[in-house]
């Protein structure tokens, strides 16, 4: 894990000193602000709020406005992780320092997760607004944010992996979006498919039904296990990819000659 701290700190520094993190956060907050005020307007017009179907539930995954920004902004947070280092050549100084690849990959990922958390933090204000006007189930708020964190961890891990596949941040962004959108579309299969293993599978990978559970205060360990898998597997793969640059294993024609 050597090298984790300095890389983590530098990564955050670079994210916030170049305006990338700020742009993403502002875009996100504008969208979520509109999302929230739409929801408020909607529920204000409803005479009676049904239990389990209040503005908080709706906010945590009741509408597409939660997912669309995540599908695009998460790959945006990670697109630079490795692609930019390789484009500019700084990767050479980084990998020749006595640091561990695991530490390096974890640091880059966790810096993205930290920014992601910072991006969500202001939405706690919305909860405060709801609390002023009515009942607020803190349990639901907590599980809602837990679900959001789980989704973020996995999307960002996938994004870091995609960033290690190319030297271009733009391509990393597109690849990352393809993966997250792909997963999201697979999840929609739950709504269109007939009963059967395919539907079960789609339901399992569906971010939509994950957030549906969490926004009702339900913590399903299968959902957490899924997020954990979708986080650790891409991170592990990234470590392998980075090590393969160093040892040239990626170059099959040379490794076969040994």
């Amino acid at each position: 894990m050597r090298g984790f701290w300095p890389v983590y700190k530098r990564e955050l520094f670079s994210m916030f000193v170049t305006p990338l993190a700020w742009i993403i956060i502002v875009v996100f907050l504008v969208i979520q602000g509109m999302h929230f005020s739409l929801l408020l307007g909607h529920f204000a017009r409803q005479p009676e709020v049904v239990a389990d179907h209040g503005p908080v539930q709706a906010f945590f995954g009741g509408t597409i406005f939660l997912y669309l920004p995540l599908l695009i902004l998460c790959p945006g947070l990670t697109m630079r992780a490795f692609a930019e280092e390789r484009r500019s050549g700084t990767i050479e100084a980084l990998l020749t320092a006595p640091i561990s690849t695991t530490g390096l990959v974890l640091a880059k990922w966790l810096a993205a997760v930290t920014t992601y958390v910072a991006m969500w933090a202001p939405t706690a204000l919305y909860m405060a607004v709801i609390r002023k006007t009515g009942e607020l189930d803190w349990n639901v708020v907590a599980t809602g944010y837990l679900g959001i964190l789980g989704v973020g961890c996995s999307y960002l891990a996938l994004g870091v992996l995609m960033s290690a596949m190319t030297r271009s941040q733009l391509i990393a962004l597109v690849l990352g979006m393809l993966v997250t959108v792909g997963l999201f579309v697979m999840g929609i299969g739950e709504m269109v498919l007939d009963d059967g293993w395919a539907r079960d599978f789609c339901s399992y990978v569906s971010v939509w039904s994950q957030m549906d559970d969490f926004s009702k205060g339900i913590v399903d360990s299968r959902r957490l296990a899924f997020d954990l898998t979708m986080t650790t597997v891409p991170l592990f793969a990234t470590v392998r990819v980075v090590d393969s640059w160093r040892w040239g294993l990626w170059n099959f024609s040379t490794s076969m000659r040994c």
């Binding site: 160093r246 040892w247 170059n251 040379t254 000659r257 040994c258």
Partner: peptide, 12 residues
Amino acid sequence: LRILAGFLGMTS
């Protein structure tokens, strides 16, 4: 030099 520095792998 890149191989010496541990940035590139060698063939043999």
